[in-house]
Write a protein that binds this DNA or RNA. Structure first.
Lengths: 257, 257
DNA sequence: CCTCGCGCAAGAGCAGTGCTCTCGTCGTGG
DNA sequence: CCACGACGAGAGCACTGCTCTTGCGCGAGG
């Protein structure tokens, strides 16, 4: 009578195929260990998908391993065969989400040959559109860090995809590789050194001044979207579309594009 | 034998005064209802203080009513006599924190009569300094919203204190009340209308173009601090002080100050 | 062809959470 | 002086992440 809540969901319910129709014969006794490995990969993916859906609904803090297990009609303990802890699952989710956003940004970028300002506007819009379409995912990426969780190195590469897009655009601005003509615009050595590693994200030559402009643009975009999505402009700004378009125009001007 | 974890902390432990020495005679039978009300106010404050400390240590998501109760040597259920919900406690914390930050910003602002650029730099530095000194509180204010929690109207006024400081500074820029001389810099009607309510935060006259500049500056500051504090520039930027100073310079330029 | 072993899922259980309800106490106002 | 109301404590519910043990089923080795 104890622990009834555990199997309540498996009571009179038929197997309920997760997405594909084959599930009761999932271990498919066809090619031995290969099939097992396949099944494992599939279930891993199914868990990730379910977690993704749950994340989109209740946010990172409400992500529950047990709910994922219920969703997939398995015991909560079985999930741990695939993800050692909640953090591991979170990392996989993080990588997937960064990649998702990075892909959206890359797709929105028209690429070299197009006016940098136009490119930046397109990517900025795509960034905001993605964030608005996936607010909880955005919060996962750019909101408060999960307490006690430190993102492993695996997440760095996907996380920098969108930054790289911005840097590429900045690099396509004429003269981005050279120091600005105006000596007053020169960066001091300390600041230049501080942001130097950022330039390695792109292959194209980029003067520190341009790197700084990119970071400035990036910070503004993140700030604007965060303020909007996290409700800080909720009562103050009426038309967020119009406001963001204006921010974009300013960002383009700042980038010198 | 069940529920032992509840009273474990009150076992052989002496009353342990919270901070002041008087505690066992807290109800102080002196002036009737006044004393009771006083004691109640004191305990409410003590709970808030404890929650504040816990917040600073484990972050908003890890804030636990039971831990607060343990800290104050009372039963967890007793806390509910003072705060109906975790959300109620969160709201009180939010108001207190917004006020804390707002006060820091106001204190950093040299006020009218000083060059707007200098004021903006000072407030920007104060904002970042406060955020770095209270990272979890910053996350509470400007990080992911707590799922299921919607900030009540009480939090709006404290939340806008720092915005008001920025608007005041923008209003002190010469010509901030007038439309810019350059017609190309004129805001279109839609954008102007979108941000119009923001201008009501300050008493000083402010052209929509200046309001937009303020919002732009605010977004950049929040973005820069969020990126730094939430670890997104962790591996990319070496000297965050230098980088932020550069951002500040750009923000000042953008404000036209 | 049978049996062993390994991978896996399931269940129970632990410690913790927010929150509710009940009960005993204690001080105060009628 | 007594009843009422505020209050603290404790038990309990439903939930969480995570661990440990048990048992099942499949493929491979003898």
């Amino acid at each position: 009578m104890v622990g009834r809540s555990e199997d309540r969901y498996a009571a009179g319910v038929p197997p309920l195929p997760t997405d594909q129709s084959e599930q009761s014969d999932r271990p498919a006794p066809s090619a031995g260990r290969t099939a097992r490995a396949l099944a494992r990969a599939e279930l891993t993916r199914a868990i990730l998908d379910s977690a993704r859906h749950q994340l989109a609904e209740v946010g990172p803090a409400g992500l529950s391993l047990r709910a994922v297990a219920r969703d997939l009609d398995m015991a909560s303990s079985a999930v741990y065969r695939y993800f050692a802890n909640r953090d591991t699952l979170l990392t996989a989710l993080l990588v997937r989400t960064y990649d998702d956003l990075g892909a959206a940004a890359e797709e929105a970028d028209a690429g070299p040959g197009v006016d940098p300002g136009t490119r930046l506007v397109a990517v900025g819009r795509a960034f905001r559109a993605w964030a608005r379409a996936h607010p909880h995912e955005y919060a996962l990426l750019y909101g408060s860090p999960v307490p006690g969780y430190v993102a492993p190195a695996d997440t760095v590469a996907p996380a920098t995809r969108i930054t790289r897009v911005l840097l590429d655009i900045a690099a396509s601005v004429p003269g981005a590789a050279d120091r600005p003509a105006d000596p007053a615009a020169h960066l001091d050595a300390v600041t230049a050194a501080a942001i130097a590693p950022v330039a390695t994200l792109t292959d194209r030559p980029l003067a520190p001044e341009s790197v700084a402009r990119s970071l400035h643009a990036w910070a503004t975009l993140v700030g604007a979207v965060s303020l909007e999505l996290f409700g800080h402009l909720h009562r103050a700004v009426l038309d967020h579309d119009a406001h963001f378009e204006h921010v974009l125009r300013q960002v383009v001007t700042d980038l010198g594009a």
